[in-house]
Design a binder for these strands. Structure first.
Lengths: 195, 195, 195, 195
DNA sequence: TATGAATGAGTTTTCATTCAT
DNA sequence: TATGAATGAAAACTCATTCAT
């Protein structure tokens, strides 16, 4: 149980107010990206965060870096979901739980769905380190589900990206009510069982 | 019952060279959108089409209208696919054929996947009329598949948009080889069978 | 006596109005740089030229390119001066005439003095081709003056850049009246005679 | 008639650490201006000095004042050079020594050459008091050289600024090797002898 | 007091759209 | 009519200066 800050160990700790600002900026960016996708503007992020543009640029050297941080956070959240689901006893329930909870998050948070589209290669590269963790966490659940025979053996970790992107886009395209996208997720899960 | 121009009834027929220009523009736009998505620029479209920007604006009042035309063409192509598949005897094969062929098109043509993302509401609205036709064509296949008991009864035409968007995004996210996204499409189809 | 446009042979001829605008832009830039040196702003150039900023950027991809064009023009003007002086009979008078006329130009036109300071490496590189011509023209005059024994043999073409930069800076630093910098130029020329 | 602090009479003596900071800042500024000229940034100066920006602003009310201080130091150094040369017996050697040593300093220290360009009117005005001293020191050497008949009588103190600016710019423009600018300086000195 | 985070006016640059040729 | 030059509002980014810690 290390003391703290295991997420970004290389940076020296920011002053309390600076950290608060950084959080406000990221949070504002999530909202703006959720609303406007790629068309998100730094000025809007700054205004919503209640800081000057310069402050945004003090924390992130350019737009890409800010987008990259959003991608990183999405990946981190997904990883957390996967790790939580690892504690579920039944292997299939654990795997399905990861998929369902991730979709739940994407449905609740437009930024979670749209960040991927808004992010270009540089932004994605920025998140590469944490992606490895997500990969491992997902792989664990997938292996267990494979071993219990409840997940088709020809579905691999490398298919997870496509699956989640697809579900995200589907959710984004589904008009209300919730009930509809939930149904689609279940169809997808059914398709991942053997046979 | 005039035969001609049922798709765009308000326009009088264009002169041959004007039609050729229009086609060059649309074709160029597909390529540019396929490459750059939302970031596609009118100047690039004009250059690739070999015409001046002014000519683009002669055919389309603004960028949205051009994007809308791309959306319309995608919808028209999907409709054509659905109508071709209507001639397939087996109800499930007909439905699955529509899904598979559409995915094939999306895999082969980046514009087909990305147009939806690049298009805003106005562009989508522009394609509303032809969407009705696609809706009908798809509904027919879905009804037949329902009646033959090979498609889950709780999958409806209204789910088709989400399904295809999802598959498009998944294909876009899947790195090579082709074999991978094809597998994912089969998983999805499996999930649409009863049980 | 070739038809025209011998200065920029690679570019296809611009439309008459476009060329006029280009000239207005360059001319405005000279004035602005003459007044503000490195602090010159594109907006000011556009305003003075009576065109929109976009027009400036249509003719020059960025600020450096515009500065580079100014450098190029300065070099071209100097070359013209050198070539005119080549027709002067007396070798020393020809060389001294080049120096005097160039200084006259620098005194009359602040842009001529300040462009060099405002230009960074990229801008200077842009003018490299025409520099070669200036080098040759100056070399000719210097050789003749060497041969006639009126120019110290240890002054070479490679010293010309330093000499003219120095004289430009001196002129820039000399307060009125003209008579003063003229005297300094004569001192410098005296220093270039043997002994 | 207090002896101390005749250079900056209005300031009360700084605490030792404050003076050290001030010196670190000025020294850093010289280096940064030497490298970047007008484009020098306060943040870079602060970083190089190892202090916060706020500390820079505690010592200098704004950028101009800092630049002014650099100008002042240049002038002070030149004055010191002139005063040292006053002890040289031969009048011409004294005058030429001042020019040569000043050029040596400019060649060795980019800040010494570039400060003038980077400084605007306000910065120059800041150094006005010490300029008077330099004027006097130079005038003395010039008068002696005039009287001995070794310096052209039409070269006056008021030409010194132009001369040194010119030589500084020339040195700045001369590529290696040293030998080259030294030669140019000798040419200039030759030009200042009678006839 | 020293620090460096925050500020925001001011720059450069882009690009959909208009309009003279 | 087709062209592509011109437009300028809008976006990204900078940096001297202020101010909370």
């Amino acid at each position: 149980m290390s003391t703290a800050a295991s997420t970004t160990p290389t940076e020296r700790p920011l002053r309390a107010d600076a950290r608060r600002n950084r959080e406000k900026i990221v949070s504002a960016a999530r909202q703006i990206v959720g609303e406007h996708g790629e068309a998100a503007q730094i000025d809007d992020v700054a205004r919503l965060a209640g800081v000057g543009v310069g402050t945004v640029y003090r924390h992130f050297p350019n737009k890409e870096a800010l987008m990259g941080e959003l991608v990183r956070m999405c990946v981190v959240e997904c990883t957390a979901i996967a790790e939580q689901c690892a504690s579920i006893e039944d292997p299939w329930d654990a795997f399905a739980g990861m998929v369902r909870s991730s979709c739940e998050r994407m449905a609740a948070d437009a930024a979670m769905r749209r960040t991927w589209q808004a992010a270009d290669d540089a932004a994605v590269a920025y998140a590469a380190p944490v992606k490895a963790e997500l990969h491992d966490a997902a792989e664990l659940l997938i292996r267990r589900a494979h071993e219990s025979g409840e997940l088709r053996p020809d579905f691999t970790v490398d298919d997870m990206g496509g699956l989640m992107c697809g579900l995200g886009a589907a959710i984004d395209a589904m008009p209300e009510p919730d009930e509809r996208w939930r149904r689609l997720v279940e169809f997808a899960l059914d398709g991942l069982k053997p046979h």
